[in-house]
């Protein structure tokens, strides 16, 4: 094993958003991310899943430097991203790229595909002359399956379908050969029949260029597909914390944390017999506690069907229950 620091490491990350309470009240904080640790190496796939408001998007945005953390550290190749020199910071911004959810608003409508894709190439000195740019952009378009490239080079976003636009967004993200791509719900707005195509495209880049992914989604099926095929991990978030992490199929088929178990019992599956036979694990309450004032102890205790008195007092640590499969739950630790 080399002693090279990981590509990205997150230690005890906290991100609190201030909100004003009433007219005279002081400031309260929404604890969007509240104590998260994770490590990403080259070529790793880390999939964050959770319901809306769990903090998964905030965590992703903080890791790529779009949101300033309240506490904790984000280390890029061992160095805190807030303490990078100007040159190191530029390198970090180049090596960490983003794919957003909405391919309709993440492309400039007044620019052609060629203009959009040649900008980062010029910016980073990868290609300069028009001929080189056309060649390189065409290469990128072929790589993301927009073929023949000549048909797409001079099109505007409105002339492309949603799936084609998302491919342009992917092409833009990979144009600078990044080491890590943060993809936040990249297939949510894509037609059902084309979703796996986009995921396969991202996985292909992982295989070819050893690109690492931080993949964020609310869709457990998509998380399973991406992590299982890419040999990665699924992490389940609840109220700002990771409650379970493990290999894709283990988390989906044999979840440890009660929250994951409840979710898995609730997701409909495309098989009428199976879907209707599923026994829903009943929650104590449907209401998600406010992230401004999360419950003491385990954050899930107010809804957990298995909660014990201890869960209301002490916060469970994230421990390795099975091989490479961690959970933060008092059912597994004493």
């Amino acid at each position: 094993m080399s002693s090279e620091p990981p590509l990205m490491e997150v230690r005890n990350l906290r991100v609190y958003y201030p909100v004003r309470k009433g007219i005279f009240g002081g400031v309260a904080y929404v604890k969007a991310v509240d104590g998260v640790d994770l490590v990403l190496n080259k070529g790793d796939i880390f999939t964050l899943v959770g319901e809306s408001g769990c903090g998964k998007t905030t965590l992703g945005k903080t890791i790529v430097g779009l949101v300033r953390p309240t506490g904790g550290e984000i280390l890029y190749k061992g160095k805190n991203i807030l303490k990078l020199s100007k040159r190191e910071y530029l390198e970090y911004r180049r090596n960490v790229q983003i794919i957003h959810q909405d391919p309709f608003s993440s492309l400039n409508p007044t620019k052609t595909v060629f203009q959009t894709l040649s900008f980062p190439l010029k910016r980073w000195g990868i290609a300069r002359s028009r001929r080189d740019l056309i060649e390189k952009v065409s290469e990128l378009l072929s790589l993301v399956g927009l073929e023949p490239p000549e048909d797409f080079l001079f099109k505007y976003p409105h002339q492309l379908s949603g799936g084609q636009r998302q491919r342009v967004v992917v092409a833009r993200a990979i144009s600078v050969n990044p080491e890590l791509i943060m993809a936040d719900e990249p297939i949510t707005m894509i037609d059902v029949s084309l979703r796996i195509g986009i995921l396969d495209l991202l996985l292909d880049l992982q295989k070819r260029f050893n690109t690492a992914y931080l993949f964020i989604t609310h869709d457990f099926g998509a998380a399973r597909y991406f992590a299982a095929k890419g040999g990665g991990l699924i992490a389940v978030m609840y109220l700002g914390k990771i409650v379970e992490v493990g290999p894709a199929e283990d988390v989906i088929h044999d979840p440890l944390h009660p929250y994951t178990k409840v979710l898995m019992s609730a997701v409909p599956v495309p098989d009428p017999e199976l879907s209707r036979k599923k026994k829903l694990l009943k929650l104590k309450s449907l209401d998600i506690p406010s992230p401004m004032n999360p419950p003491p102890g385990c954050r899930f205790n107010t809804r957990c069907p298995f909660s014990k008195p201890k869960c209301e007092k002490e916060e469970p640590p994230l421990v390795e229950v099975r091989k490479k499969h961690w959970a933060a739950c008092w059912l597994y630790t004493s």
Binding site: V192, S193, L194, R195, I196, G197, L199, D200, D219, F220, G221, A222, R224, Y225, F226, A228, K229, I252, M264, V267, V269, P270, D271, L274
Partner: peptide, 16 residues
């Protein structure tokens, strides 16, 4: 083409 919780991921594919 549905990335679902059941079935093998190897058999899932998008519609060209």
């Amino acid at each position: 083409s549905i990335p679902s919780l059941t079935g093998s991921v190897e058999e899932m594919r998008s519609i060209p």
